[in-house]
């Protein structure tokens, strides 16, 4: 007879593991990835591939040779970081900038804090912000290259948010800007220009619903972000529609959906409790809208998430589970 195992209880384990959760996230991202590949073509595939491969490879190299703790290589989570980073970049990003992004995401934002689970800031967002500041031209000049399906003419120039910000700065009102650029606010299905992840709200939503059904994430963080943005935008837009963009417009542009559904819900860098999540989400929503209405950057989702990342330990300390028998 074989030697029997002896271990403390419990003797059973749920099916979910870190790897299976990461697999679910990849599945959830795939509709948006497919849509962006269809729209942006080979260059999008290149960005995705470079980002994913370099993130996974970097994590392995750093864990193995720099930290000398090969068990810190997580694989699946680095892949998710890589995909999210790629979806945050324009399809036209040169490959070497993508690699710089991967180095920042994995090397600085993740591994220097001790690897998976130890990082304070969302790695993909940190990398995006780093690139945004370091390479403003490549990161904001959205030239839509030829995709696999037609439908959009190659539009070059800034994102809708960028266009409006410029217009407002030069003293125009929003209707004037929109009319001058031939835009309307029907951007549910596809954006005009933007990073891969911003292109299709429906694809992102579909993926997120999958995560909800699989019970990988809870809806409270995205819900509170979106509601906050909508409410703040509705108030300002109601007071002065000429200078403040509408709720609809704000929800559908500038990576709000990608950020709210997939970046702000990152386990490691978001609060654990439901109410903590709500505070986190409301904070992000408020900061986004403040940046958009009063700041000098046209969007602000990335900054908002990074700023609220800092507060996660505090939020975790403030919000606890309701304990049994201690009411």
């Amino acid at each position: 007879m074989d030697k029997m195992i002896v271990s403390p209880s419990p003797h059973l384990h749920a099916k979910a593991s870190t790897a299976s959760i990461m697999r679910d996230v990849v599945i959830a991202l795939s509709p948006a990835i497919i849509v962006s590949i269809l729209f942006y073509g080979w260059s999008e595939i290149l960005v995705l591939a470079v980002s994913a491969v370099s993130c996974v490879a970097l994590e392995w190299l750093i864990a193995r040779y720099l930290m000398k703790r090969p068990e810190l290589f997580s694989g699946s989570s680095a892949l998710v970081t890589g995909l999210l980073l790629a979806m945050n970049l324009p399809a036209t990003t040169p490959w070497w900038i993508v690699i710089v992004g991967a180095i920042v995401a994995i090397g600085i934002a993740k591994m220097s804090f001790g690897g998976l689970g130890q990082n304070i800031f969302n790695p993909a967002i940190t990398a995006r912000v780093f690139l945004l500041i370091s390479f403003p031209v490549q990161m904001t000049n959205w030239t839509a290259p030829k995709g696999f399906i037609g439908g959009i003419d190659a539009v070059s120039g800034a994102t809708p948010l960028g266009i409006i910000k410029e217009g407002l700065k030069s003293g125009q009102t929003i209707p004037q800007v929109l009319a001058g650029n031939g835009m309307d606010v029907h951007m549910i299905l596809r954006d005009i220009g933007g990073s891969a992840g911003e292109i299709s709200a429906l694809a992102l939503l579909a993926g997120f619903i999958y995560l909800l059904v699989r019970k990988v994430v809870k809806p409270w963080i995205p819900l509170s972000i979106l509601v906050t943005i909508a409410v703040v935008a509705a108030i300002f837009n109601g007071i002065d529609p000429e200078h403040f963009t509408s709720p609809n417009f704000n929800l559908m542009t500038g990576g709000v959906l990608l950020g709210a559904l997939f970046m702000a819900t990152d386990y490691v860098t978001s609060p654990m409790s439901n109410w903590g999540g709500v505070v986190f989400g409301v904070g992000i929503g408020l900061i986004v809208m403040m940046i958009r209405y009063f700041g000098s950057y046209p969007e602000g989702m990335s900054f908002a998430i990074l700023i609220m990342n800092c507060f996660v330990p505090l939020i975790n300390r403030a919000f606890h589970q309701k304990k049994y028998g201690r009411a």
Binding site: A16, T18, L72, S74, S77, G115, G117, M272, Q321
Partner: peptide, 16 residues
């Protein structure tokens, strides 16, 4: 493997 702060343990604990 490292804790990923998913909060499942806290959600599952019947004592809160």
């Amino acid at each position: 493997t490292p804790c990923i702060s998913c909060g499942r343990c806290a959600d599952a604990c019947p004592m809160g």
